[in-house]
Amino acid sequence: NMVHPNVICDGCNGPVVGTRYKCSVCPDYDLCSVCEGKGLHRGHTKLAFPSP
């Protein structure tokens, strides 16, 4: 899995490795796959980016 450079997960404050989930509503909100799997930020649609 690749690390998305200059992207920090807003759920756990860790690096985003593998798929990046970017909120389509909020201007700067990203989740890693673990936090997305936990259902964080469920109210907004997210775009999935498998690689940087």
Rank of each mutant, 00 (worst) to 15 (best):
N1D: 11
N1Q: 04
N1E: 13
M2K: 11
M2E: 00
M2W: 00
M2I: 11
M2G: 01
V3R: 08
V3E: 11
V3K: 15
V3Y: 11
H4K: 13
H4Y: 08
H4Q: 09
H4F: 13
H4M: 09
P5G: 06
P5L: 15
N6Y: 06
N6F: 03
N6C: 07
N6L: 07
V7Q: 05
V7M: 10
V7C: 10
I8W: 08
I8V: 12
I8M: 14
I8E: 10
C9F: 00
D10Y: 12
G11D: 05
G11V: 10
C12P: 00
C12I: 00
C12M: 00
C12K: 02
C12H: 02
C12Q: 01
C12Y: 01
N13T: 09
N13S: 08
N13M: 06
G14P: 00
P15Q: 08
P15D: 15
V16F: 03
V16T: 09
V17T: 15
G18P: 03
G18T: 07
G18V: 03
T19S: 08
T19A: 09
R20W: 11
R20I: 12
R20K: 12
Y21E: 01
Y21A: 02
K22N: 09
K22S: 07
K22I: 06
K22F: 05
K22V: 06
K22W: 04
C23R: 02
C23W: 00
C23D: 03
S24G: 06
S24E: 15
S24A: 13
S24R: 11
V25W: 04
V25G: 06
V25I: 10
V25P: 03
C26V: 01
C26N: 02
P27N: 11
P27H: 08
P27A: 07
P27W: 04
D28A: 08
Y29E: 02
D30G: 08
D30Q: 12
D30Y: 15
D30E: 09
L31S: 04
C32P: 01
C32F: 00
C32S: 01
S33N: 12
V34G: 11
V34D: 10
V34M: 12
V34K: 10
C35G: 01
C35D: 01
E36G: 01
E36M: 04
E36I: 02
E36Q: 07
E36R: 04
G37R: 09
G37N: 13
K38R: 07
K38I: 06
K38Y: 05
K38H: 05
G39Y: 07
L40R: 11
L40F: 12
H41L: 03
G43R: 09
G43I: 11
G43F: 09
H44E: 02
H44N: 03
T45F: 09
T45V: 10
T45S: 10
K46M: 14
L47P: 05
L47C: 14
L47I: 15
A48C: 14
A48N: 07
A48M: 15
A48T: 12
P50Q: 10
P50E: 14
P50W: 05
P50T: 12
S51A: 13
S51K: 08
S51I: 07
P52Y: 05
